[in-house]
Design a protein around this nucleic acid. Sequence first.
DNA 1: ACAAAAAGTGACCGATCGTGCCCTTTCCGG
DNA 2: CCGGAAAGGGCACGATCGGTCACTTTTTGT
Lengths: 195, 195
Amino acid sequence: MKKGEATRARIIDETGRQAAIRGFGAISLGDVAEAVGLSKSGLFKHFDSKEAMELATLDAGFDRFIAFVWADADDLPPGRARLENVFERWLDWTEVENAAGGCLIVAASTELDDQPGPMRDLLQQRVRAWRQRLAGEMKALREPPMSDAEAESVVFQMKSFILGHSELRRLLDDTGARAAARSAFDSLMARTRNP
Amino acid sequence: MKKGEATRARIIDETGRQAAIRGFGAISLGDVAEAVGLSKSGLFKHFDSKEAMELATLDAGFDRFIAFVWADADDLPPGRARLENVFERWLDWTEVENAAGGCLIVAASTELDDQPGPMRDLLQQRVRAWRQRLAGEMKALREPPMSDAEAESVVFQMKSFILGHSELRRLLDDTGARAAARSAFDSLMARTRNP
DNA sequence: ACAAAAAGTGACCGATCGTGCCCTTTCCGG
DNA sequence: CCGGAAAGGGCACGATCGGTCACTTTTTGT
């Protein structure tokens, strides 16, 4: 009922935090349990296995990501304004909100991209859905709308700049990372919009 | 002497392979030893600790990366031709040469970007050196040479497309990943070169 | 060929891994 | 307020973790 759900949420939260830092494969049930103030066996009342816990964490991570990045997108007109806001919040997500550990999704993507299983399947499905949402948004940049292929190409570059920003900011401690990403994205938008 | 060096190289090779797949934090000495045909204690005659083994592996990984990607760059004129060759071989490196596990450096970068220690220090130092080499190359695209800031901005985008390609190809199994990356890079080169 | 050095083995250490079982405590609907 | 269900703890399991030590086998320089 109520209590259980709250504990489950705390477990998921802590798992996400640790997995973003050390990777899903390197976290341990004991560490998560201790950080959350539970015994290892207490954890198993909420998840049947470590993998079930990881799956729930990854799924919740996507929900949190979309809720954060898309927060004020619904109030904005489709197209450029909305895309620029999403990009800006996406940068926030990487360097501010998730200050400790960076984006869980990016971490999981490079960790699990060659390990078959339900984790990778979930990752694929939700990343594809996110890219499709962005691609749909890209089409509003032009009238008549650009082709699917062109929209996907723009999404590719947008996501690329997010990944580049993440490396520059998080690994190389470059404070100019945000400016570099924004400038690259602005240039992309400028040469993509309706003439 | 001779025999030891060969074994050490095999260990490093196998460690790199496994770390690219599962991450440095998730590999175990036992697995590496077994795969290489050694006992765990045999491993310790070549490395004093797991971390020393990981450091040697990461360092050697950079050497192999540069040797592969830069292979025919020295025979090419500086500037656009050389950069395009490097980019092409960089894509090769991700999707062909390192078919199993992808690029060790990319994997290590996202895994270790928030774990302080000698591994992250080494990563920073060598990634910075590589970016500086590329930035120097960028300057040959223009006469008079572009500013440091502008060169770094172009390097940022180049590296971003590499990361984007890696995700598209390895996580999303998108066979069009290479074309997307090449097209984005071509466009970048076109608007960067000497007018 | 020989001795010293290097390479490699097997047993073992304490700690921790994910997990199952059984018990107690706490919560919540009737 | 009560009874059943949910939440959580204690404990132990077999396996594996990184690492040490004493020992044997192989390699190498001379």
